[in-house]
């Protein structure tokens, strides 16, 4: 059965969660490539991945961060922040 954008978003979120556990940061393109590799046969394409990332960021489940390049991460307390 074809995957929906919400299902792709959930799968992406899981990828980011796992990467975080290993101290790894993922770029949006890493997530898109992972989704295409795993689910291309189920109808997933780049456009759907783009929408999934937009949903994840707009809902606040993931946030963009910058460390020499842009990454998608779970929301967390900023390490450098002077609270």
């Amino acid at each position: 059965m074809a995957m929906t954008v919400d299902q792709i978003a959930d799968a992406m979120y899981k990828e980011v969660e796992e990467a975080t556990n290993f101290g790894k940061k993922l770029k949006p393109m890493d997530l898109t490539k992972a989704m295409l590799k795993a689910y291309e046969e189920e109808g997933v394409d780049k456009k759907m991945c783009k929408s999934a990332i937009k949903n994840l960021v707009d809902s606040g489940r993931l946030v963009y961060t910058y460390f020499g390049g842009s990454y998608l991460e779970l929301p967390h307390r900023e390490g450098a922040a002077n609270d």
Partner: peptide
């Protein structure tokens, strides 16, 4: 420099 700061929904435009 860098980090998490930004506005909701955007990944650019703010430099922490």
């Amino acid at each position: 420099h860098g980090g998490i700061v930004g506005v909701m929904g955007y990944g650019g435009g703010v430099i922490g």
